[in-house]
Write a protein that binds this DNA or RNA. Structure first.
Lengths: 201, 201
DNA sequence: CAAGTTCTGTACCAAACGGTAACATAGTGG
DNA sequence: CCACTATGTTACCGTTTGGTACAGAACTTG
């Protein structure tokens, strides 16, 4: 589905699927699913409707593709942030600082596409249970970050799990705040709250 | 706007505004703003379109009214929960237990109408900056709950603020989880994370 | 009981929605 | 150079959208 499998025999495509998906990701991210019409999509992508429908199926399937692409991209970004953050509790602070940089960017102000979608459309769309997938994937990343704050050992696993759950929920809430016109000071304050919490770890 | 001001001189209304707003609150809460059409609203309320438009103005203004009503109702519920929760850290645990009961109810599975709306429609609608209003009001309540976990004193105010910000963000994130098809076990796990955090306060 | 006022209910509107038929166009393989 | 195939492009489809005109019904006031 992502790459050409059969040899292209007909007229070649004038647009790049990946580039279109990237553009439309930004569009959906800003406007939401329901507030984005096919006309918006045509205008933003520069691709005519029949081509979009032949390539992606329907608006719903298109959005499912956008979500899938966003998920892997987003998780790669989280992986990168966690890799750059060092070990121990200090790593958590570094992660939060790196995250803040992203939160204050233009994209950051739109929050998280997955959080937005799961609020607007509930769990699943076009046979893709994205809400559960997002929670699972994201929690796994956070777990990697948090595990470093706790010494290995059976009874510490429970502590690490609790901290991971807290941090995951916290980040989801932060995305809600980021999307709803909070200014830089307010975002900084809410990040500071997690800094303070991590200091007691 | 809420109660009759002038003497009623014409034909009396067959429906109760408050009851209609309550019904439509549930409808919007479940379906979201964009996914709820005026036809849905007519069917659900039993009130015909022209009556709705004369009474509430437009779909947008109607939703703004629903949000206003929901905000005060929701804050009253938070106040009640916090009143019932005792003092000290124990009060936080009690609050979380009370909150869990609500979270597992049918309504709880829909998350929070304000969180949903702020994700779908950004900050404001029909001259009502509900996102900011919600954050402010909610944070004030949480602050009341958290203040009890900290002894009075200038330097402790900062600590209480940080805990309040953390708890507020956490609750927002929890609402996201509650709305996206999480089962009772998962919700319990995420609540447990805050129990564990509060134990160290 | 007639005038004045407000609400109900049917029937309707233009505009926008998601989606497609049909034809021109640009490539590939024989 | 001719079928063949897949694309670009225009113009269109039926349905649903948010919103209203209009006529009749129900109440108050004089």
């Amino acid at each position: 589905m992502t790459t050409r499998e059969k040899a292209a025999t007909g007229r070649p495509r004038l647009f790049d699927e990946e580039a279109v998906l990237a553009t439309l990701t930004a569009l959906f991210w800003k406007q939401g699913y329901g507030q984005t019409s096919m006309s918006d999509i045509v205008e933003s992508s520069g691709v005519h409707k029949p081509s979009l429908y032949r390539t992606f199926g329907s608006k719903e399937q298109l959005f499912a593709l956008v979500l899938r692409r966003y998920l892997t991209e987003r998780m790669a970004m989280f992986d990168a942030l966690i890799d750059r953050a060092g070990p121990g509790v200090e790593g958590v602070h570094t992660f939060l600082e790196l995250f803040e940089r992203d939160a204050l960017s233009a994209r950051g102000r739109d929050g998280c596409l997955m959080v937005m979608a799961s609020n607007e459309l509930r769990g699943s769309i076009a046979d893709f249970d994205f809400a559960k997938a997002y929670r699972t994937e994201m929690r796994a990343r956070i777990s990697r970050l948090i595990a470093r704050t706790v010494p290995a050992g059976g009874e510490n696993a429970e502590l690490a799990d609790a901290r991971t759950d807290l941090f995951t929920t916290y980040l989801l809430g932060l995305h809600v705040i980021m999307r709803s016109d909070a200014d830089a000071d307010e975002i900084h304050r809410y990040l500071n709250a997690m800094h303070a919490t991590a200091e007691q770890w």
